[in-house]
């Protein structure tokens, strides 16, 4: 569960989200709407310690977003940006990047596990041999999601992810994120995505309003 309790968030001294309270139950699919610069991305980033919480508390599964908890909180969350940074030479290296870090070094997935995850996202395993730079936006997006699945993430923060997706990728991503029990907090302007989310919020002038 995620809860915002009277939260004010700022970036570089400027208040972007003011005195916001709401909560999201596990498994809910939530979408935030609002003009660009309205603070949507800042709100997502605040969940993972990427924006300054000036007042109030954000809790994720009971843990407040504070320096002492941030490492544990980050374990549960996946952030999928508009343009995912795939930075390694090949797609395989990008997919397995987290398993090069100390925290996951002993948990490297087997070839069979990887194949299952890729199939679920309609990705051809041959893609792993490709250079990361040659992947399409949709493929990068799915690769990043595949990585999050391999890390067993439960909460997905998705920032305008459908803008990079072609029809095939869209179906795969929609069915993975929206038809499973993962918690999804997203930002989108895509009517199709918004229509399939269970709750819709609008951010305007720093405050948040839920649409019924």
């Amino acid at each position: 569960m995620i809860s915002f309790e009277a939260v004010t968030i700022g970036m570089q001294g400027r208040v972007l989200v003011h005195d916001v309270s709401f909560s999201i139950m596990a498994g809910e699919k939530v979408v935030l709407r609002g003009k660009s610069g309205s603070g949507k991305t800042t709100l997502l980033k605040a969940l993972v310690g990427g924006a300054r919480i000036m007042h109030g508390v954000i809790r994720i599964n009971g843990l407040a977003v504070l320096p002492e908890n941030i490492q544990q909180i980050r374990q549960d969350l996946a952030y999928i940006p508009q343009e995912p940074g795939v930075s390694r030479e090949t797609a395989a290296e990008d997919l397995l990047l987290p398993f090069s870090f100390k925290a996951h070094r002993s948990q490297e997935p087997t070839a069979a596990q990887i194949e299952v995850v890729l199939a679920r996202l309609l990705l051809d395993p041959a893609i792993l041999g490709q250079k990361s730079a040659t992947l399409s936006g949709g493929e990068k997006q799915r690769l990043v999601i595949a990585r999050a699945i391999l890390l067993n993430k439960r909460i997905f923060l998705a920032d305008e992810i459908t803008s990079a997706l072609d029809a095939e990728s869209k179906q795969a991503v929609f069915s993975f994120l929206l038809e499973t029990d993962h918690t999804v907090l997203s930002i989108s302007h895509d009517p199709e995505w918004i229509g399939r989310c269970s709750r819709v919020f609008t951010i305007e002038n720093g405050s948040l309003r839920e649409e019924k």
Partner: peptide
């Protein structure tokens, strides 16, 4: 410039040193 990428490394369990390494 690549704050989102850096943040994604932290979310993948990287320590600060691991995340800044690239």
């Amino acid at each position: 410039k690549n704050e989102a990428t850096f943040l994604s490394y932290l979310l993948m369990g990287a320590t600060l040193k691991e995340a800044v390494h690239p």
